[in-house]
Write a protein that binds this DNA or RNA. Structure first.
Lengths: 220, 220
DNA sequence: AATAATTTTTAGACAAGTCTAAATTATTTT
DNA sequence: AAAATAATTTAGACTTGTCTAAAAATTATT
């Protein structure tokens, strides 16, 4: 139906739109998919002809309903595949993205539905990002940045903000993985670092840089 | 490393070479991948430049060692994915091929090794075709055409010759699926049809056309 | 409001892969 | 062995997606 490349553009634009709310400009797209502005102009003309987005010269783009649908479907596929790679094939947290980036373009509605069922209809991928449903519904999660937590508060590690391999490897090395219980025992007013306890057992120190990239579901 | 298209050509040539033993000509390749002879000429020039096959104008082609390696790797991927689709996602026998045709081009050695392990290192795909190993070794199977069987002989359905969706659906409808026990109870000298018993329970009549497309492992 | 800086678009070229139609080469028939 | 037929290759064009360099439009600065 839609090409590999078209899907990538739509996904990239969707993600930019999600973050910034204003209409998305050419340079931002070029940056996010590592290509040149001239190439972006060419492609958004094509996507505009196909009614996947609204485009006015020099004014940026906005996805149409159909464009958004395709983007969400691609995100759904990506996150389902990431879940498969992590929970069934034992890929590490940081290794799933690159392979899923390829798998997300396989064309078969049946495949995705069956994969979803096989995985037990997961709601979140291995990074804690929500997996859109068949009709594009996204379950809003009430995760809070760890850096917002006060001393004494507790929760469960549920997602990350930074998705870079470097960060994910760092977390894994320090056992800061999804599902772990976490409690704040100290917080420094000086460098904003915090002392935490994992699963009521291990104490460790986290920099602010780490804490502000971890999402936690608050518990009593 | 190699493109989607290059892999498809190499796989097609490998399969033709497997069947016919002589050097493969342009038209045969064009027919097998549903393209035009002119396109084939262009591509085999390219593959020849890359040392994936030996090509002499008007004389046909032959895979090099590296070309064969790539072909076998692609076949391995295809058959592992078919196995996954059938045994884990419950795809029907005849539906696995088209999706596997896409999945076989995903680039990740780690993925294939982990998939292989996840599936329990299967030796045959859902059609009874052998799955090449990591180094391209193919386990030769001693399957015999059902049409060669004599009255009284027994075996286990282990593969098919015809891979068409139409044939596979026919088999499924008649419970002639992999693993079933089969015994020949009658054979007609007139139309070469046979009467068989499945799993010591159900009797049915098979046309010669069906029997000569089923592979059976003989048992005592 | 004019100039400078930035962003975006256009123009033209390139690579991969495909195609049709015409020209070559090989094979078969007589 | 010549003629007819079939197979293969070449030439040139097209599509998708990309790029660089230059031109045009927009935004920011003074």
């Amino acid at each position: 139906m839609y090409s590999f490349t078209e899907e990538n553009y739509l996904k990239a634009i969707y993600k930019l739109q999600e973050q910034s709310d204003v209409s998305i400009n050419t340079n931002a797209i070029a940056l996010s998919i590592q290509t040149k502005a001239a190439s972006v102009t060419d492609m958004i003309k094509k996507l505009s002809d196909k009614k996947l987005l609204k485009y006015e010269k020099y004014k940026g783009v906005e996805l149409t309903k159909e464009g958004k649908r395709v983007a969400l479907e691609t995100v759904r596929k990506h996150r389902l595949w990431e879940t498969f790679l992590h929970s069934k094939l034992n890929f590490t947290w940081d290794a799933v993205h690159d392979v899923a980036e390829q798998l997300e373009h396989i064309q078969s509605a049946e495949l995705i539905d069956k994969l979803d069922e096989f995985l037990g209809f997961p709601t979140h991928d291995p990074h804690g990002d929500p997996i859109p449903g068949r009709n594009g519904e996204i379950q809003q999660s009430n995760f809070i940045l760890l850096s917002e937590f006060k001393v004494g508060e507790k929760g469960i590690i549920s997602g990350v903000v930074n998705h870079s391999s470097l960060f994910l490897k760092h977390l894994e090395k320090n056992q800061l993985t999804l599902g772990r219980k976490i409690k704040i025992t100290e917080a420094s007013a000086f460098d904003l670092s915090m002392q935490i306890v994992l699963d009521d057992k291990n104490t460790q120190q986290l920099s602010h840089e780490v804490a502000r990239n971890i999402l936690v579901k608050k518990t009593k």
